[in-house]
């Protein structure tokens, strides 16, 4: 299976996405904003279908919508109590809009399926180069904000008292999450972004007591799950996203057992 070009591409794309998702997901889970990350995928879906309708590349629409809505969510999502409902509303409206755009767009239904559930086998070499570049930029920006982000996450009142702009940090971070979601959606689709962003990070956090170890383990788990998912998909002919979702859930259950034992 390693001799086929499309499989090599699939492994490369899965690896890129896994590294980015694991690292971003660590902070997403630590901030208890998993649901927001999930919603960004749906907003991205509306963006992608909107771009299709406008005759633009769907990926650009996905990226723009996810990044912009991430930043807006960070700026306005201050009141925690309202957040779940607000995020849920954004999520459902986005999915509805995406559906509308799709129904107006007279193209194939295959586009919708690959947006929703990903299509790792459709990734070509040019896309991989673009994904690698986007991954490096996003990771670099994440590294740049990671110190204030960690402080703001663990001790918001104290960070604010020291002069940190919590809303700015939150907006920057969720914009980066939007970018990571757009990348991950190409492999696992917008509906299953959760599996690579939240699953590995949540498992890693159960098993580690230090930030660096936690990020490293989240990345490692995401890598193993994504690559194994691609390989298992080749062997079984089941969808890649399905395998990744199953492995992700399995890893999380394993982490619960391990951290209790």
């Amino acid at each position: 299976m390693f001799t086929y070009d499309f499989m090599q591409n699939a492994f490369a794309a899965a690896a890129i996405v896994a590294v980015l998702s694991g690292a971003t997901g660590y902070f997403l889970v630590l901030r208890q904003q998993s649901f927001a990350g999930h919603a960004l995928g749906h907003v991205g879906f509306a963006g992608a279908t909107g771009a299709l309708l406008a005759g633009l590349p769907p990926l650009s629409g996905l990226l723009a919508a996810a990044v912009c809505s991430g930043a807006l969510m960070g700026l306005f999502g201050e009141r925690l109590a309202e957040r779940d409902v607000a995020v849920g509303l954004v999520l459902s409206v986005s999915l509805g809009l995406g559906l509308l755009f799709l129904s107006l767009f007279t193209g194939s239904a295959g586009q919708a399926t690959s947006l929703l559930f990903g299509n790792v086998l459709a990734v070509d070499a040019a896309t991989i180069r673009a994904m690698a570049a986007a991954c490096i930029i996003t990771l670099a920006l994440l590294a740049l904000i990671s110190r204030p982000l960690l402080f703001a996450t663990l001790r918001p009142e104290l960070a604010a008292a020291r002069g940190l702009d919590l809303r700015l940090v939150s907006a920057l971070f969720l914009a980066l999450v939007g970018a990571a979601v757009a990348e991950a959606a190409q492999i696992v689709g917008v509906l299953l972004v959760f599996t690579l962003m939240v699953g590995p990070a949540a498992a890693a956090q159960r098993l580690t007591t230090r930030v660096a170890h936690g990020i490293a383990l989240a990345v490692l788990l995401a890598l193993v799950e994504a690559l194994a998912g691609v390989a298992l998909s080749y062997l079984t002919d089941w969808p890649t996203s399905c395998w990744i979702a199953l492995l992700s859930a399995l890893a999380y259950l394993g982490s619960i057992l391990a951290s209790r034992g």
Binding site: A143, L144, I145, S146, R147, P148, L150, F151, T153, L154, R155, L158, A159, R162, G163, L164, Q205, R206, L207, T208, T209, R210, V211, G214, S259
Partner: peptide, 18 residues
């Protein structure tokens, strides 16, 4: 699940980027 030390350390140093 972070250690107590990691929790304290998150507030140490500057609040600058990095």
């Amino acid at each position: 699940r972070l250690s107590g030390r990691a929790f304290v350390a998150a507030a140490a140093g500057s609040i600058g980027w990095g």
